[in-house]
Amino acid sequence: MKSKTIKGFATLVMAAVLVFTAACGNNNNKEANQPSNSNAPAATNSANAPTESTEPEVKLSGEIKIDGSSTVFPVTEAVAEEFRKVHPDVRVPVGVSGTGGGMKQFTAGEIPIANASRPMKDSEAEAAKAAGIEFTQIDVAYDGLSVVVSQQNDFIDHLTVEELTKIFSVEGNAVNWSDIRAEWPSEPIVIFSPGADSGTYDYFAEVVLEDANMKTEGVTFSEDDNTLVTGVAGTPNGIGYFGYAYYEENQDTLKAVPIDGGNGAVAPTFDTIKDGSYTPLSRELYFYVNNAEMARPEVAEFVKFYIENASELAGEVGYVGMPQEAYDEQLAKIDALK
């Protein structure tokens, strides 16, 4: 009796698994067998897609592998998503192996486009040269690195770059907030920072620390920015930094500290990042394209499409679009490659 029930149940589960697999298999077939059908809605969509280019005269196909910075990923993903609506046969897989990881593949000629949240290093440029690869750097958007404290923090009104250096460097020797400004409480400084592998860390260290060394003792490092958000929000005497998008989404628990880079304290906002008044922590986001790959029409079209839509799409995913002149410059660079 009991074994019968188990047998029945077993059959049921097996059947469920089979149906599930079969259902998924069907989906694939549908896609593979009915390209005409899947093109139809895509064509209608392209009318709504934020693009200035007209309907493609030639039907583009092929694959454009992109890899690199996880910071630039959301922008490239958004562009790839819109590009697919116009050119459904061009496959654009986007990976996130970090700026350094993407550069390694790019300079070895494995991928035509690499996302980067920092300019290419000399060593990477040499690797590309050794492999006979010529490349072009294209700027896509701005990100304002935001220095943040908890909403519960009531004493920090702004920080100068020198004070940032003192807070974050070993050489600054600051233990308590009173070491930074005498009127601040003698509470310990608790730091939250992105991990040393990230482009965000590299950029912050370069701008704020210059030749000094980043503190490691008592610092919470995390590759996951959401961990940093939670950490800073729950620590009244904590401080941290990360991309503007993470601050923008968490304004109810975090305060962005206005930064004085020599011309008065400026808080990171969409406008101050866009017009360049939020310095020196505004950074550019890039991608690098292999010049030889621009001969492939789908790559050339994708790169152009990227720049034409970068401003709007960057804004949608939490970054800041550049002024139109800057995009015009990028387009000129691209045209020169053809």
Partner: peptide, 12 residues
């Protein structure tokens, strides 16, 4: 991730 699975893949 190491052997190169992409994160955004809009095709099968």
């Amino acid at each position: 991730i190491i052997v190169g699975a992409s994160t955004y893949v809009a095709f099968l």
